[in-house]
């Protein structure tokens, strides 16, 4: 067995603050807490192994999100092949493991279940840009697509989500609360 790689102080200072966001993106994509945390652990192992290969410090966030995104897509493809994925509508919201007790919890389940029905390419731009606050250029780097494609995907994803919300008018008031 290979000895575990030791993170150096630079790596800890740069990576540790980003772990909560990585967990969030992983959980939003995989919709399972344990799977998501396992995936983040995998990302951290790889980041430690390849730390000296990363290009510049400014891009550490995009670099980590790219590693995570690619691993998550692999996992989603494996799930689809196994047929293990349940019909998306049947995935219980509890799998998202959002702590209860918040007034917004009822409403937030709605938006999460709608977003989970979007294709991965749409879901990922909404999450990377809207939730993780990546710049459009960082998102392009993470997804390995041109900037123009990021913008058109973002536009389409937002429109598609709007159409889904419009089809379910009872959900709309819940969404308005947080605007």
């Amino acid at each position: 067995m290979i000895a575990p790689v030791q993170p150096n102080a630079d790596l800890i200072a740069a990576v540790q603050p980003l772990i909560p966001a990585l967990r969030r993106y992983a959980r939003a994509l995989l919709r399972d807490r344990a799977d998501a945390d396992d995936l983040v652990q995998d990302v951290l192992e790889r980041a430690m192994g390849r730390w000296h290969q990363r290009r510049e410090a400014a891009g550490t966030r995009a670099w980590l999100f790219a590693i995570l995104h690619n691993l998550a897509m692999d996992q989603l493809r494996r799930r689809a092949r196994r047929g293990a994925a349940q019909p998306i509508d049947a995935v219980p919201e509890s799998l998202l493991a959002i702590p209860p007790g918040q007034e917004t919890a009822v409403h937030t389940g709605d938006i999460l279940s709608l977003v989970s029905r979007l294709p991965d390419e749409h879901r990922s731009v909404l999450l990377l840009i809207g939730v993780e606050d990546l710049s459009y250029a960082e998102a392009a780097a993470v997804l390995d697509i041109p900037l123009g494609t990021v913008m058109s995907r973002l536009s389409r994803a937002r429109e598609r989500l709007r159409a889904m919300i419009a089809e379910e008018p009872h959900r709309a008031p819940a969404l308005r609360i947080v605007s």
Binding site: P99, Q102, L112, V115, R158, L161, L175, V178, S179
Partner: peptide
């Protein structure tokens, strides 16, 4: 609104 709702939903993680 979509963006804000999604952010708020995932913020606790």
């Amino acid at each position: 609104s979509e963006r804000d709702a999604l952010r708020a939903a995932l913020a606790p993680i």
